[in-house]
């Protein structure tokens, strides 16, 4: 129970459950928040690009099991979001709430764009339609809002890494 990997499994499973049962019911312009993407972003911000990539890949695979788009696209999206969040967090000199929200927005946008572009390359041009801009805006804003509880969940999952990185800053 104390192993970070096991705790991350619990965090991802809980996020997947909430995404399927609750989050998708609340939509703005047909778009809902993406809790699994937020977990990937938070993991990247807590544990760096590598941790973000692993958690993003796992949470993306989890979402892949619940949607009908090509299997692996959400994994790429989560991976990219986690890596971008980790790199941006490393590049920032000081920490502030607004900066955390901006990083969450940018990382989620990177994840969504990578999803749409990879899908288009796989013969799904409909994924790169004008609707992507709406998805970018709404998922970006909701990610920025949900990143704080997600950061707490990831700090619980990996307290040592969170402390080490906080001390190194």
């Amino acid at each position: 129970m104390n192993h970070p990997a096991l705790r991350y499994v619990i965090v991802i499973a809980t996020a997947a459950f909430l995404q399927y049962t609750v989050i998708t019911q609340f939509r703005i312009a047909g778009v809902s928040a993406d809790l699994l993407l937020v977990i990937a972003i938070a993991a990247g911000m807590i544990g760096g690009a590598e941790r973000g990539a692993i958690v993003g890949f796992a949470s993306g695979l989890c979402l892949d099991l619940m949607v009908t788009t090509p299997f692996g696209l959400c994994a790429i999206s989560g991976l990219v979001a986690g890596v971008v969040a980790g790199l941006l967090e490393d590049a920032t000199v000081h920490s502030a709430r607004w900066l955390t929200m901006v990083i969450a927005f940018v990382a989620s946008s990177a994840g969504i764009l990578s999803f749409a572009i990879a899908g288009t390359l796989l013969g799904r041009p409909d994924l790169l339609s004008g609707h992507v801009l709406t998805i970018l805006a709404i998922v970006g804003i909701t990610s920025a809002a949900l990143v704080f509880p997600a950061l707490r969940a990831c700090r619980w999952a990996d307290p040592e890494d969170a402390l080490l990185r906080a001390a190194a800053r």
Partner: peptide
């Protein structure tokens, strides 16, 4: 360097999954 290798392996895994699914 280890992070780059991990990320590359994960990307390759995702591409493999996409290929299997297609």
């Amino acid at each position: 360097g280890r992070a780059r290798i991990t990320i590359s392996l994960l990307l390759l895994s995702a591409v493999l999954l996409l290929t299997l699914d297609s």
